[in-house]
Design a protein around this nucleic acid. Structure first.
Length: 278
DNA sequence: CCTATCACCTGCAGGC
DNA sequence: TGCCTGCAGGTGATAG
């Protein structure tokens, strides 16, 4: 459940429910989830730290503690569980455990073990942490301007537009679902190359992106695979999808049957009438 | 610089 | 039922 709206939903749910407990113990069952630091160091540094602030950059969850910044990326299937009573699923997929001062436990669950966690000494300019080395501006960062986008996209106009939208080094937070939805909104075929990225189009791309991501955030994100019950991940935006996962169904505008193809190796959905590839 | 492919992991759906 | 293949909302490394 990884794109920006889903990460936002998880973050806000954690912030509202968990608030500010102190970490009393840490247990790691799959070492590769901890990145850039040894598991022992990870545990030792976290003990005694209190959750202070909840922030987001693209698809990253950022937890400011007293002396450290704890960052998590859910990748394909990572989920956090807190105050889960009896509905903690498949214990074999629970990999990181945080025992908290409120008597509860924060558990990281990840079927495919792709998720990553980072821990850095706290500082104000968190955007400069190593894990963000190749990350551009968040969808809602005011520095994401038409001029900025034009500079980045024009140089790489030979790539399909969807590939550019998915590049976290330019706009951080767009994933496979929303890239398809944004292309549909722009009426551009996702595989279209050599698009004329002038200021007007870049402005339209930013507006379209923010409109769709905002709506998805307001709806609690998109839940495609019916795994529900994970923390804050039973969104409703799937009800508003125009193309993604709608192969064989009629376009909401022109009733043309939605088709599926591959762009940059990713499953890609589009309306063959409204999004024509030149 | 760019694309293609694999790697990281597991589960599930579909074909036989 | 079992086996096999391909696919899944992500990203990084590597080869050409």
């Amino acid at each position: 459940m990884p794109e920006r709206p889903e990460v936002y939903t998880v973050l806000k749910t954690l912030e509202n429910q968990m608030q500010h407990p102190t970490i009393e113990a840490v247990n790691v069952k799959w070492d590769n989830i901890i990145s850039g630091i040894s598991v022992d160091e990870f545990k030792i540094k976290l003990i005694g730290q209190t959750f202070r602030e909840y922030l987001q950059l693209g698809k990253y969850l950022i937890f400011k503690l007293d002396d450290y910044c704890f960052i998590a990326h859910l990748r394909m299937e990572g989920k956090f569980f807190y105050d889960f009573a009896s509905e903690l699923p498949d214990s074999k997929h629970n990999h990181v455990f945080f025992k908290l001062s409120d008597g509860k436990e924060l558990v990281y669950h990840d079927v495919r073990k792709f998720g990553k966690m980072y821990l850095y000494p706290i500082r104000e300019d968190y955007e400069n942490y190593p894990c963000f080395k190749n990350i551009g501006y968040d969808v809602f960062d005011e520095r994401l301007t038409p001029q900025f986008l034009m500079d980045k996209f024009k140089r790489r106009a030979s790539s399909p537009i969807k590939t550019l939208l998915l590049d976290q080094g330019v706009i951080a937070g767009i994933g496979n679902i929303y890239a398809d939805e944004i292309c549909y909104d722009l009426k551009i075929h996702p595989a279209q190359k050599n698009v004329n990225y002038d200021l007007e189009l870049c402005d339209a791309i930013i507006n379209s992106t923010r409109k769709i991501i905002s709506k998805a955030m307001a709806e609690g994100g998109t839940t495609i695979r019916s795994y529900t019950s994970s923390l804050g991940v039973s969104g409703r935006f799937q009800l508003y999808l125009n193309v993604h996962m709608r192969e064989g169904e009629p376009c909401h505008h022109c009733q043309t049957i939605i088709e599926k193809t591959k762009v940059g190796g990713r499953g890609t959905y589009f309306c063959p009438k409204e999004q024509v590839c030149e």
